[in-house]
Amino acid sequence: MATAPEAGDKSVEGVVGHTADDGVHRRDFIYVATAAFGSVGAAAAIWPFVDQMNPSADVLALASVEVNLSQVAPGQGIKVSWRGKPVFIQHLTPEQMAEAQNADLSGLRDAQTFEERTQEGHRQYLIQVGVCTHLGCIPSGTAAGEVKGDFNGWFCPCHGSHYDNAGRIRKGPAPTNLEVPEYTFLSDTNVRIG
């Protein structure tokens, strides 16, 4: 080990006292680079721990369901489960459709026409998410014998929201109409929700 005399002195000094401060605490480029690089890596490593909370592949695969409506007679309704929530599918009679089309929309909290809530060519099927837009309870009125509320549609027992037979909010605290999900008719009686 070839050490110049002054280097030897310095090393002794380095051992004896803490002269570290002048050389060490000065942040030069390499320290900043190491810290920055490490921080970027740590930040990137956090992503998988966050993303694992998002819906998993099997949950996403069930994000759409196909329903066969051939068994649902006019005037009847069914509930199907979609993304863990009920979907109400109501097969309307011509009289119900007429009533819903001719309803007076003035003064409604969330005025939507019947045409906006159903699809061209399949107007007889009213498809909506069966979750009250107030605080998430399930309104009654789909199955025979359930309370349909003051407007012959749906009634939410939690806080008394009344929906008409097109799912529009008429009375009570709910802020909007029952939500209409995305859906596509694959054939006249087959519909894919989601």
Binding site: P48, F49, D51, N54, A57
Partner: peptide, 24 residues
């Protein structure tokens, strides 16, 4: 968060983690 401690489903829940959970 993803594992289920029940003999019926424990093994399947681990495979669920391996195959379906994001970065599981």
């Amino acid at each position: 968060m993803h594992y289920a401690a029940n003999t019926e489903v424990a093994f399947s829940s681990v495979e669920h983690i391996m195959r379906d959970v994001n970065y599981g």
